[in-house]
C-alpha cells in the first residue's frame, strides 16, 4: 500500500499536478486555436469598420437620406432602416401573439406524452434554413395573399391608409415580408418562451391551485408574471433574428428602396438591400453598404445583449424563490 502510494506520488502527483500545468501538445493547440479566434474576430470587425469608414463622412445622409443613387450617390439608407423596423416589428407582433398562446398550450394543455414531440418539432422548425421560408413565401404565400388576403384587407376600415394599393403583380410587399418573417421567427420565440414558462417553479403552480385558482388564473396571475422578464428576453431575441434576416426578405419584400408606409407596397430591409446590391457596387457604394451593415450589427448586438441580460435576470429572479 505504502509502496503504491509512494509510486503514485512520485510519478503522477509531483510531476503532472503539483508542478503546475504541463505544457503538452494540447496546451499549445488550445493557445493557438484561441489566439486564432481572437485574430479572426478583431480582423473581421476591424476590416468592416475600415471598409465602411468613407461612408461615415455622409452619416446623416446614410441614416436619414431617401433614395439610393448608384453608382454616383448619394446613398440614403432611410428606406432600408424603416423597412427593417416595419417588417421586424410587424413580424414580432405576429410571432409574440401567436407564439405566446402556443407556448402556453404546449406547457399546460398538450398531454405530457405529446409535449416532447411538439417541443422538438418546434425546435426543428426553428432550424429550417431561411431560404426555404423565403421560397415558401414567394411561391405559396404571395399568390395566396394576392388572391384571398388582399381583397379581404381592402374591406377593412382605413385599409388604403395603412396598406395602400395592392401591387397586383407578383405580390412582393412589406406585408408579405413581415408575414414570412413572422412565420420564420415564430418557432424561435416558441422554443425560448416554452422553456421560460416551463422553468417557472412547480411549487408556485401548486400553491395557486391550492388557493382555489382555476387553470386560467394560474397561467394569467402566477405563471406569466413569474415568466415576464424571460418572455421579454425571448421577444428581443426573436426581434434580433428578424432584423438580421436577409434572404427571405430579399425574396419577398420587393427590393425597392422607397420609404414606404403602405404595407402592401414593395420595400426592402438593410440586410436584404446589402445582399441584393453588393454584387454590382463599387467604391463609395461598397462603403455605404458596409456602413449599413455596421448599423445592422449594432442593432443586433444591442438586441442580443438586452435579451441576454433579461434572461439572466429571469434566472436569478426564479433562483431566489
Amino acid at each position: 500500500m505504502t509502496v503504491l502510494l509512494d509510486n503514485l506520488k512520485d510519478d503522477d502527483l509531483t510531476e503532472n499536478i503539483s508542478a503546475g500545468p504541463s505544457r503538452g501538445w494540447y496546451h499549445w493547440l488550445i493557445v493557438i486555436a484561441s489566439s486564432l479566434f481572437a485574430v479572426v474576430s478583431i480582423g473581421f470587425v476591424g476590416s468592416i469598420l475600415a471598409y465602411s469608414f468613407p461612408a461615415w463622412g455622409h452619416a446623416a445622409t446614410l441614416i436619414t437620406g431617401r433614395g439610393w443613387q448608384s453608382p454616383t450617390g448619394p446613398y440614403g439608407g432611410l428606406a432600408m432602416i424603416t423597412g427593417t423596423l416595419e417588417t421586424s416589428l410587424l413580424a414580432l407582433t405576429f410571432a409574440v401573439l401567436v407564439g405566446l398562446g402556443t407556448s402556453i398550450a404546449i406547457v399546460f394543455l398538450v398531454p405530457r406524452r405529446l409535449r416532447t414531440i411538439v417541443a422538438t418539432a418546434v425546435e426543428l422548425l426553428a432550424a429550417v434554413p431561411s431560404i426555404i421560408y423565403g421560397l415558401w413565401g414567394f411561391l405559396v404565400l404571395a399568390p395566396w395573399m394576392l388572391k384571398s388576403f388582399d381583397p379581404f384587407l381592402a374591406k377593412l376600415p382605413f385599409s388604403s391608409a395603412i396598406f395602400g394599393p395592392s401591387s397586383q403583380q407578383f405580390g412582393p410587399s412589406l406585408l408579405l415580408a413581415s408575414v414570412v418573417l413572422g412565420v420564420m421567427i415564430l418557432p424561435t420565440f416558441v422554443a425560448i418562451s416554452r422553456e421560460v414558462i416551463s422553468a417557472v417553479p412547480n411549487d408556485l403552480v401548486e400553491a395557486s391551485y391550492s388557493l382555489g385558482a382555476t387553470r386560467w388564473q394560474v397561467i394569467k396571475d402566477v405563471v406569466l408574471p413569474a415568466a415576464k422578464i424571460g418572455l421579454l428576453g425571448a421577444t428581443f431575441l426573436s426581434l434580433a433574428r428578424a432584423t438580421g434576416e436577409t434572404v427571405a426578405v430579399a425574396l419577398v419584400a420587393g427590393g425597392v428602396a422607397d420609404v414606404q408606409f403602405h404595407l402592401l407596397q414593395p420595400g426592402t430591409s438593410i440586410a436584404a438591400w446589402i445582399a441584393t446590391q453588393f454584387g454590382e457596387a463599387q467604391g463609395n457604394e461598397i462603403s455605404a453598404l458596409m456602413a449599413l451593415g455596421v448599423l445592422l450589427m449594432l442593432i443586433n448586438f444591442s438586441l442580443s445583449l438586452i435579451s441576454r441580460s433579461l434572461v439572466n435576470r429571469q434566472r436569478k429572479a426564479l433562483a431566489r424563490v
Partner: peptide, 28 residues
C-alpha cells in the same frame, strides 16, 4: 378553498407584494 395547503419550501408568489400574496386566494 376549504382545505388549504402549506408546502415544504416556502413558496410565496415572487412577483406579488406581501399584501397581494395574502389576498391572492381571495382574488382567485
Amino acid at each position: 378553498t376549504r382545505v388549504g395547503m402549506v408546502f415544504q419550501r416556502p413558496n410565496p408568489f415572487p412577483t406579488m407584494s406581501i399584501y397581494d400574496n395574502v389576498i391572492s386566494g381571495l382574488r382567485f
